[in-house]
Every structure is written in C-alpha cells, then in structure tokens.
C-alpha cells in the first residue's frame, strides 16, 4: 500500500472517530425514545402549566355573558382570544385581572380590511373610514357585536 493511502486511512479513521465521539457526546440522552426527536421534550412541555384554560372555565362565574356571547356572531370566538390567558384569574379573580382590550386596533386585528381574508368568513371594515373617532365598543357590544 502506498504511504499516502496509509496516512489518509489513518486520518480518515481519526476524523471518523472524532465524529462518533461528538455524536456520542452531543446526542441528547432521551433522543429516539419515542421517535426521531428528544423524548424529554414531551415531558418538559407537559410539565408546563397551561396558560389558556378554555372558555368552559369561565362558564360558572360569568354565565350571563356566556349566554349572550354564545348566541351572538362572536359565538365562535373563545373568551380568551380577547381577554388573554385566564389561568391565574380563575384561581383568584379578585386580584388577578383579565385584559379588557377596548382599543380600535384590537378589533382591527380581525376586522380590518384584508384581501387575504375571505369576505364570506368575516365581515371587514375599512378601519380608517368606519367611524374613525370613537372606540368600536361604544357602538358595538363585544359580546353581542351585531347590535
């Protein structure tokens, strides 16, 4: 075997072992436990507290609003998509306040005119033209918007 081939083989073996070493050292321990990912990632995520509780959690205490809202055109929208995550509020409603977004920008997130949104799915307004000087909620009840 010529000397250059010998040296290259040695170098190749060295590089490959370094690669294997790195692979060994850097691969997370729980990799491949369930599939092609780090198994612990699941447990880590499961251990986090859920910030969004779902609309059902609000029913017990705010039944009048729930009743109104569920009959309205906003029935498909969860309470928390407007009020923010409720995980603290449901434990301690006196001290942990929810957001009450009353600005025009807030409603515009969904209702501003946007070509990318089918008009059938959501009614849109040109926010710059539609009663520009007042807050939306002065005329529209957020829980019963069609009025």
């Amino acid at each position: 075997m010529p000397v250059q081939l010998k040296r290259l083989l040695i170098l190749g073996v060295v590089l490959f072992s370094v690669f294997l070493l790195f692979k060994y050292l850097l691969t997370p321990a729980s990799f491949g436990q369930y599939g092609h990912y780090r198994g612990l990632a699941l447990e880590e995520n499961a251990a986090l507290t859920a910030k969004y509780t779902g609309s059902e959690a609000c029913y017990d205490c705010h039944d009048s609003i729930v009743a109104v809202k569920n009959e309205s055109l906003h029935s498909s929208i969860a309470c928390e998509s407007c009020h923010g995550p409720g995980f603290k509020h449901i434990e301690d409603p006196e001290n942990e306040k929810m957001d009450q977004p009353d600005s025009r920008e807030f409603c515009a997130h969904c209702h501003a005119f946007n070509k990318a949104r089918p008009e059938k799915a959501i009614t849109q307004q040109d926010i710059r033209e539609h009663n520009p000087d007042e807050k939306c909620i002065e005329c529209h009840n957020p829980h019963q918007p069609q009025q």
Binding site: E105, A112, F113, N114, K115, A116, R117, P118, I127
Partner: peptide
C-alpha cells in the same frame, strides 16, 4: 395613523388579489 395600522396597511399594499396570510411575507 397608529403604527400598528401602518404596518398592517403597508403589508396589505404589497398584495394583489387573494392570498393566504402566511404568504404575504
């Protein structure tokens, strides 16, 4: 105009016709 609106309307001004929201940028 409020900066948030400005961003929204600027993004929309790049768009012609119908496009899904994740395709604007």
């Amino acid at each position: 105009m409020n900066p948030q609106f400005e961003h929204l309307y600027e993004a929309l001004s790049k768009v012609d016709g119908y496009i899904y929201p994740n395709e604007i940028e």
